[in-house]
Amino acid sequence: MTAITEPRTGTNAVEIDSISKVFGRGRGAVTAVDGMSIHVGTGEFLSIVGASGCGKSTLLSLVAGLEEPTTGSVDVGDHRVAMMFQEAALFPWLTVGANIEVPMKVNRVPAAERRRRVTELLDLVRLTGFERKRPHELSGGMRQRVALARALAQDADVLLMDEPFGALDAMTRDILHDELERIWQEKSLTVMFVTHNVREAVRLGDRVVLLSSRPGRVIEEFTVHGERPRRIDSVPIAEQAAAITDRLREEVSRHA
């Protein structure tokens, strides 16, 4: 069993050291995360997979600072952290452009600069010209790209993604994998990507961390081999995914 997962080289953007999170007290208490240690290198794409109840979402909430760990520590240094969810959670009363401006308003970016960055970010996610549309006029995949643009508008270099493509159809998801890979490289982001989908994890990640369920612990870590840009349907990806899936099934059957 791996005690701590380390990136290959370089400095760390995120250092999670033996964190635990317990919800509730006394007999009804539930341990969601139990002694996880994960280090994520600067510029690394880390995928995190596990079955239900592995505390994936809790883990990201802890890194984002939405919740405090019961024990252990999360250190993101000077890095700014943004987060994306399965639902785009765009503000329906604002246009696409105004949605992307929200985090910049929080950071007190001047109006002219905001306008300029909105155009730039929309170009980046290939939504040039959609600035004045409203979220309900877009498809699910387009909304997730707006959400990505909004996350990047926070000036974050660490991106936490909680099953961001879970609600999309397979074709849209494939294309968004390509897009995310490109943007991750262009912007030198550090990504922690949580998913149920082992293939997706292997397709995107430099490393894949496998979690156990109830309580969530790190079981094993895999380094993914394969030149980028990758394809989800290539043989090496499928083979590596199969090995991880076997390990995951083993873990799941433990709960029978």
Partner: peptide, 10 residues
């Protein structure tokens, strides 16, 4: 989900 998104954006 909007409240959570707002929290994440600070």
């Amino acid at each position: 989900s909007l409240l959570r998104a707002g929290k994440v954006m600070g």
